[in-house]
Nucleic acid binder design. Sequence first.
DNA 1: GAAGATTGCGCAATGA
DNA 2: TTCATTGCGCAATCTT
Lengths: 156, 156
Amino acid sequence: VSSGKHPVVTMDRSGVSVIQTQGNGSTGLQQVPQVVPSGARGGGKATPPSKAKRSAADKESEEYRQRRERNNLAVKKSRMRSKQKALDTQQRVNELKEENERLEAKIRLLSKELSVLKDLFLEHAHNMADSVQPLSAEGPGPRSQSGNHNGGGSSQ
Amino acid sequence: VSSGKHPVVTMDRSGVSVIQTQGNGSTGLQQVPQVVPSGARGGGKATPPSKAKRSAADKESEEYRQRRERNNLAVKKSRMRSKQKALDTQQRVNELKEENERLEAKIRLLSKELSVLKDLFLEHAHNMADSVQPLSAEGPGPRSQSGNHNGGGSSQ
DNA sequence: GAAGATTGCGCAATGA
DNA sequence: TTCATTGCGCAATCTT
């Protein structure tokens, strides 16, 4: 997953993979969508020019076809994986988003609890102060509801 | 982006497209994998550079090449986007993961704060109880360090 | 209904 | 050598 080079030797502008069966006058041409590789080929063998020992680069070569088929299979497999991975990643995003919301909800809850406790504390503190120091003109009595009930906020 | 049909017209082993929408200019019903036996062709020669008016399906056609080129461009563009999107999604995953950790840290912090406050509360409560009811044999004195200082945990 | 966008597929080069 | 990846062009579809 690194190089970005591609000489692209093949394909002339006519679109055909360069490697055309050049001297071929009549390729039987069997299409048959052959969806199933069926492992062993063997199906209608219509291989053309009966020559035999081709260099591994001969398009007519048996070996060539075998290699191509194998590669095509590998490519398919690789692409399937790639696609699956993409789906998984997308799924992961969704899961993380949910988790995030869950965590944020929890934070809101904890913050609220904390706020309540702090308020109670302040109230107590006031009561204590009143008890200890009733010297003020205003004797011990109902404290006015404090306005701001949020002590120090947690950092961040 | 839903249907996933693919008649798979494919190319014959030599890499040449099997389908030659030749002489087919109709609205297209269905193009069955119609294999075109090259037999119809004279001794081997693709349409000579005769004139201009090709059915738009002629490989030699100027229009054909233009269409191909445009499509190749579009394909490239589309694939680039696709790739970029994948990267973005991956990036998103990373961001969400970070966010998650941040949130969890905050939760730990808040939980700790809460725990401390609750402990203080319990202690106060005890002191209060002692003050109000000094009838016990043990008079008001230093309270033993409580062991477990964690009140109820927050729900969820 | 033509132009652009997508998608499956095979090929070849290259990576591991 | 074999398999895995990846860029590329083609053609069929799908979307505008």
